[in-house]
Design a protein around this nucleic acid. Structure first.
Lengths: 193, 193
DNA sequence: GAATATCCGTACGGTAGCGTATGGACATGA
DNA sequence: TCATGTCCATACGCTACCGTACGGATATTC
């Protein structure tokens, strides 16, 4: 569960990183002060010096996720070639990440039972809108109208979310190894104009 | 929250139905004995007469969902015409249910943070496999090879899951009313051969 | 080298939920 | 009518977690 064998002095970022990890693995309920303190080799005394309370920690974890997510998408898109192949490469990368990186797309899933939570809903809305806009402009770059591009972005993003869910909950339903790469290629062909 | 203004004597089914509703709305953590007792106008004394403990209640709720889901899919597929239109009609129905019926596809989402829970994982696996098989055979009916049909089923089911997630967490991202029906039609055209 | 700020551990009270024990209300049958 | 079975409320102890109070340790500054 915990990896860092204690640390001299903890920062606010250490706490929110641990909180984000707990959120990713076991949901919002796992963002609990005392268990996370234990995982950091500390006690609540430390926590309440850095944070006002549990809500403050949740907000910090969500904020950290939103930043990480934004940076990640931007880096991915930049990394993804030029012109027409940009969209295809992006799709391949994120669909690979879903089965490769442990917990890509897991935060969204962990947040689902609390999608109407006043702290969660705005973050979820911003992240989704940002990703949808990115996809939409990639589709308009391919010559689609704005309306068609939005629809395509919706379907594509839904497919991404669904694959994340399958990879997370029922990984046996997805092909393994090289077969998965071939499967992704077929998906990309179906989804791109 | 609760609707039935108390009841003379409660049955095991009353409890598991209330548990399923709580699960659907607020996740597995909300499947808690005392809050549900309160929502039924009863106390724990009643609960522990019908159930061995909380795990027993969770199992009953999951079982109820699995049965309801199976019956629902079968009824839907039967309802869905004959031949080539069968697949298209099914897709239209489930994609409409995602935004129409309150909480279609919500249980899967609520269960995501506990996908590795020893009671949850087998149910999730069975439900997913059953749906995937249904889709696969509908695609083979359309002339696709078994392998192509499986791939198509994966993409289609992922799209369904993703739309359920969008409808649940960020409903603003989906078209409303009649525009949604048109959107669904475009999706179905893209996904069917 | 003493004062101050930074960081954290310990101890405490409070709440929510789980599970058990026990008795009581009500019906049903002998 | 009394005995038995069914269904449930109340009361209790237990655990996990939240938040506060307070004091101690270490570093930093003058």
């Amino acid at each position: 569960m915990d990896m860092t064998p204690a640390k001299a002095t903890l920062t606010r970022e250490d706490w929110s990183a641990a909180a984000l990890a707990a959120l990713e693995r076991h949901g919002l309920a796992a963002v609990a002060v005392e268990p996370i303190a234990k995982s950091l080799g500390a006690t609540k005394g430390s926590f309440y010096w850095h944070f006002a309370g549990r809500d403050d920690l949740i907000a910090a974890a969500l904020d950290q996720w939103e930043r990480r997510d934004t940076d990640g998408v931007i880096a991915t898109v930049d990394h993804a070639a030029e012109g027409a192949d940009r969209l295809r490469l992006l799709l391949r990368l994120v669909l690979q990440a879903v089965v490769g990186a442990p917990g890509a797309g897991s935060i969204e899933l962990a947040l689902q039972p609390h999608a109407d939570h006043p702290m969660v809903a705005p973050v979820l809305a911003r992240v989704t809108e940002r990703r949808m806009s990115t996809l939409e402009s990639l589709f308009t770059d391919q010559g689609l109208s704005r309306s068609d591009a939005r629809d395509r972005a919706r379907l594509t993003y839904a497919a991404y979310l669904g694959h994340a869910q399958l990879a997370h909950a029922t990984p046996g339903q997805l092909p393994k190894g090289k077969a998965y790469a071939a499967y992704v290629d077929r998906i990309v062909e179906t989804l791109t104009p």
